[in-house]
Amino acid sequence: MTILVGYTSTPEGHAALRHGVETAGSTGKPLAIFPLSDRAEGTGGDASLEAALGAGARLLERDPQGRHPAEELIDTAQEAGAELVVIGVRNRSRVSKILLGSDAQSIILGSPVPVLTVKAATDER
C-alpha cells in the first residue's frame, strides 16, 4: 500500500509533502506524489519536492482528460492502492468557498481511503 500526497508548490503543499514523507518513513510504505497543479509537475528548483524524489518518492503523471484535479487524485488513490491520502489545506472565507468550491472537501468526501489534512505552519505562509 502507498501513501499518496496531493502536492502543490505552496506552503500548504509543502506541509502535506513533509507529513507524507514522515508518514511513509515511519510506516515503511512507499510514497507517491500527485501534482495537483501543472506547476508541481516539474521539479524546477522546488527543494522539498526534489528531496522527496531523491529519497525514493515517485512523482505521478497527471492525465486530466477534462477532469478536475480532485477527481484525478481520487481516481489515482484507487489505482495506486493508496492506504492514505495527504493534502494541505488553508482557511478560506465562506464567499470564497461558494465561488471557487473546495477541492479539499471534494477529496475528503470522495476519497475511498482516509485523508490526512495538514495546515502550513504560520511561519511558512
Rank of each mutant, 00 (worst) to 15 (best):
58 R>M: 14
58 R>L: 12
58 R>V: 09
59 L>A: 06
59 L>G: 03
60 L>Q: 15
61 E>T: 07
61 E>K: 15
61 E>W: 10
62 R>Q: 04
62 R>E: 01
62 R>P: 13
63 D>F: 13
64 P>V: 06
65 Q>M: 12
65 Q>Y: 12
66 G>M: 11
67 R>I: 03
67 R>T: 10
67 R>N: 10
68 H>C: 09
69 P>N: 14
69 P>Y: 08
69 P>T: 07
69 P>W: 09
69 P>C: 07
70 A>I: 10
70 A>S: 12
71 E>V: 14
71 E>A: 12
71 E>H: 12
71 E>G: 13
71 E>D: 13
73 L>H: 08
74 I>Y: 10
75 D>N: 14
75 D>M: 09
75 D>I: 07
76 T>W: 11
76 T>I: 14
77 A>L: 06
78 Q>W: 09
79 E>M: 15
79 E>Q: 14
79 E>K: 15
80 A>C: 08
80 A>V: 12
81 G>V: 14
81 G>K: 15
82 A>R: 09
83 E>L: 07
83 E>M: 11
83 E>Y: 09
84 L>I: 05
84 L>W: 11
84 L>R: 12
84 L>N: 12
87 I>T: 10
87 I>W: 14
87 I>R: 10
87 I>D: 15
87 I>A: 14
88 G>D: 02
88 G>E: 05
89 V>T: 08
89 V>F: 12
89 V>W: 05
89 V>I: 10
90 R>C: 00
90 R>M: 01
91 N>H: 03
91 N>E: 15
91 N>G: 01
91 N>V: 08
91 N>W: 02
92 R>M: 02
92 R>T: 00
93 S>Y: 01
93 S>A: 01
94 R>K: 00
94 R>I: 10
94 R>L: 02
95 V>C: 00
97 K>L: 05
97 K>A: 01
98 I>S: 02
98 I>W: 01
98 I>M: 08
99 L>M: 11
99 L>V: 05
101 G>T: 00
102 S>Y: 11
103 D>K: 04
103 D>F: 04
103 D>G: 10
103 D>T: 08
104 A>C: 09
104 A>S: 12
104 A>W: 07
105 Q>L: 02
105 Q>M: 02
106 S>E: 06
107 I>P: 06
107 I>H: 06
108 I>E: 05
108 I>F: 04
108 I>R: 01
108 I>Y: 07
109 L>R: 13
110 G>R: 07
110 G>H: 05
111 S>N: 04
111 S>R: 07
112 P>S: 15
112 P>G: 11
113 V>A: 12
113 V>H: 06
114 P>T: 00
114 P>C: 10
114 P>K: 08
114 P>I: 07
114 P>R: 11
114 P>F: 03
115 V>N: 01
115 V>I: 08
115 V>E: 03
116 L>S: 02
116 L>M: 12
117 T>P: 04
117 T>H: 09
118 V>F: 02
119 K>D: 03
119 K>M: 09
119 K>G: 02
120 A>E: 01
121 A>R: 01
121 A>H: 00
